[in-house]
Design a protein around this nucleic acid. Structure first.
Length: 134
DNA sequence: ATTCTAACA
DNA sequence: TGTTAGTA
């Protein structure tokens, strides 16, 4: 059914922002610092896995503890070609430039039942209720 | 509407 | 880090 592969990239940066409390700027900066290596879609959009989110949370905590990027690199280690064996080609098969975002996050079948504008508002409300399941 | 890169405050 | 411009 719904395999929960923590390595499978499915989250858009927007969702990662909500889940980690970090800003998009920070998330992208940490990637630039080689602390994380999210996958990309054909449209070049970043798609994060659950493990990416967890690592981001660790980074956030370490940063709050006063460590700098360099220090974190030594602690967690740079994500140097770790998962190079099985390439998740999900980016080519499922997400053609459109990763999981607020619009298509697991919300039963109302994903495409409402006009885009109303859907955004609706999903946002549903998400708040659904937010405490993490 | 959402994300991306690059660049400047 | 925040933000903004111009895109995809």
């Amino acid at each position: 059914m719904a395999e929960l592969d923590s390595e499978k990239p499915v989250y858009s940066i927007g969702i990662v922002q909500e889940k980690t409390g970090l800003t998009g700027r920070q998330i992208r900066y940490y990637e630039e610092s080689e602390l994380i290596k999210p996958a990309r879609t054909k449209g070049n959009q970043r798609i994060y896995s659950q493990s990416d989110i967890e690592k981001l949370k660790e980074i956030k905590e370490m940063l709050e503890k006063g460590l700098n990027i360099a220090g974190i690199k030594e602690k967690l280690g740079t994500v140097n070609e770790v998962k190079k064996k099985k390439k998740t080609k999900i980016s080519e098969s499922l997400y053609d430039g459109r990763p999981l975002t607020k619009f298509n996050r697991g919300k039963r079948g109302l994903t495409s039942l409402y006009p885009v504008s109303d859907r955004a508002q609706l999903l946002e409300i549903l998400d708040k209720k659904d937010n405490d399941k993490d």
